[in-house]
Amino acid sequence: MFYPNSPQTSPQLTQIPYGQQYAMMQRQIQQPYHPFATTEPQARLYPYHYQGPIQQEQGGFITQQSTAASPQYVQMRVTPVDQSIMSGYPNQTANGSSSSSFNYNIHPQQQQQQQQQQQQLRHHAMPVGSVPLQDDRYRKQLIVNYLAPDVTSTDLHELFSRFGELDGARIIYDKQTNMSKGYGFVYFCHAEDAKEAVERMSGYEFHGKWLKVGYSTNPLNIVPSNSSPYVHAGSRGAAG
């Protein structure tokens, strides 16, 4: 039997160049792979992502010199942007860049009308829970959420009447099932009393439920100042 490094198959040491006398086997001759043993700084910083320098080929596509990437890492192929796409944008300079302001050559009167329309939209648009300043009635009506099913309009009136005089209180019921929808409205005579009720009743436990109280901004629920107070009856038909 002959071994790869046996004296019968191995040459004389004098015939082997210096430095390879003890590297006779194939696994010894093959050098191990060192990912950080390279002179390129990109490979030292990113050993798993770097795959060699990027070269520009004919046709405008950018390719990489090395083989496919590892399945664990996804390499994105980048193509140059066609400058003709950006030619339609206004205020574009000769080098292809555009300024931040756009001039669509709008007539001054049209621009003024658009600004007025935007101001009107901001004036009428009102986020949930906010209180408008032009109508004091919005500051007097509250919406009470997360009410228990057994709470009546009379219970709601008695709960909030300790903060001040009320114009009314009612629970909203479903017309088909005649069941409470879980929320109601309270109408105060003074805005200061309503503000105190919002601050003190939010998070209050009532009939096993934690109440959420806020201003009601729905104009359909506003009680006119010259109208008669609501009837605080315990029956659902009268309260709904």
Results as ranks from 00 to 15, higher is better:
residue 2 F to C: 03
residue 2 F to I: 04
residue 3 Y to P: 02
residue 4 P to N: 08
residue 4 P to M: 06
residue 7 P to E: 07
residue 7 P to K: 10
residue 8 Q to E: 09
residue 11 P to S: 06
residue 12 Q to T: 06
residue 13 L to D: 05
residue 13 L to T: 10
residue 16 I to L: 11
residue 17 P to S: 06
residue 17 P to K: 02
residue 24 M to V: 14
residue 24 M to F: 06
residue 25 M to K: 01
residue 26 Q to R: 06
residue 31 Q to A: 11
residue 31 Q to S: 08
residue 32 P to E: 07
residue 33 Y to W: 15
residue 34 H to P: 11
residue 34 H to R: 11
residue 37 A to H: 13
residue 37 A to G: 06
residue 37 A to N: 08
residue 38 T to I: 08
residue 38 T to E: 04
residue 39 T to N: 03
residue 39 T to Q: 04
residue 42 Q to Y: 07
residue 44 R to V: 15
residue 45 L to C: 10
residue 45 L to F: 14
residue 54 I to G: 09
residue 56 Q to G: 13
residue 58 Q to G: 11
residue 58 Q to A: 07
residue 58 Q to H: 15
residue 59 G to R: 11
residue 59 G to K: 09
residue 63 T to N: 11
residue 63 T to F: 15
residue 63 T to K: 01
residue 65 Q to M: 14
residue 67 T to K: 02
residue 68 A to K: 03
residue 69 A to T: 12
residue 69 A to M: 07
residue 69 A to Y: 14
residue 71 P to S: 05
residue 74 V to R: 01
residue 75 Q to H: 08
residue 76 M to S: 06
residue 77 R to K: 13
residue 77 R to S: 09
residue 78 V to N: 08
residue 78 V to Y: 14
residue 83 Q to A: 09
residue 84 S to M: 15
residue 89 Y to I: 06
residue 90 P to Q: 11
residue 91 N to Y: 13
residue 93 T to Y: 15
residue 94 A to H: 12
residue 95 N to G: 09
residue 97 S to I: 08
residue 97 S to T: 12
residue 100 S to R: 12
residue 100 S to D: 06
residue 101 S to W: 13
residue 104 Y to I: 14
residue 104 Y to G: 04
residue 105 N to S: 04
residue 105 N to G: 12
residue 107 H to P: 09
residue 107 H to D: 05
residue 108 P to A: 09
residue 109 Q to Y: 13
residue 110 Q to A: 12
residue 110 Q to H: 11
residue 115 Q to K: 06
residue 116 Q to F: 11
residue 117 Q to E: 08
residue 118 Q to R: 10
residue 119 Q to L: 11
residue 119 Q to M: 11
residue 120 Q to E: 06
residue 122 R to W: 15
residue 124 H to M: 12
residue 125 A to K: 03
residue 125 A to T: 12
residue 132 P to I: 09
residue 133 L to A: 04
residue 134 Q to L: 09
residue 134 Q to C: 09
residue 135 D to A: 04
residue 136 D to K: 01
residue 136 D to I: 05
residue 137 R to P: 04
residue 137 R to L: 02
residue 141 Q to T: 00
residue 147 L to Y: 04
residue 150 D to H: 05
residue 150 D to M: 14
residue 153 S to M: 14
residue 156 L to N: 13
residue 156 L to K: 03
residue 157 H to P: 11
residue 160 F to V: 04
residue 161 S to L: 09
residue 164 G to R: 00
residue 164 G to Q: 03
residue 165 E to I: 11
residue 169 A to I: 01
residue 170 R to G: 00
residue 171 I to D: 01
residue 177 T to Y: 13
residue 178 N to E: 10
residue 178 N to I: 07
residue 178 N to V: 05
residue 179 M to D: 06
residue 180 S to K: 02
residue 182 G to R: 07
residue 183 Y to D: 00
residue 184 G to R: 02
residue 186 V to I: 06
residue 188 F to V: 04
residue 189 C to I: 13
residue 194 A to L: 01
residue 195 K to A: 10
residue 197 A to T: 01
residue 200 R to A: 04
residue 200 R to K: 05
residue 208 G to A: 05
residue 209 K to I: 00
residue 209 K to L: 00
residue 210 W to P: 01
residue 212 K to F: 00
residue 213 V to G: 00
residue 213 V to W: 01
residue 214 G to W: 02
residue 214 G to A: 08
residue 215 Y to Q: 01
residue 217 T to E: 01
residue 218 N to C: 00
residue 218 N to M: 00
residue 219 P to V: 01
residue 222 I to P: 02
residue 223 V to N: 05
residue 225 S to D: 05
residue 225 S to T: 13
residue 227 S to T: 11
residue 229 P to Q: 12
residue 229 P to K: 02
residue 230 Y to P: 07
residue 232 H to A: 03
residue 235 S to C: 05
residue 235 S to L: 04
residue 237 G to A: 04
residue 238 A to R: 12
residue 238 A to T: 11
residue 239 A to V: 11
residue 240 G to Y: 14
residue 240 G to D: 05
residue 240 G to P: 05
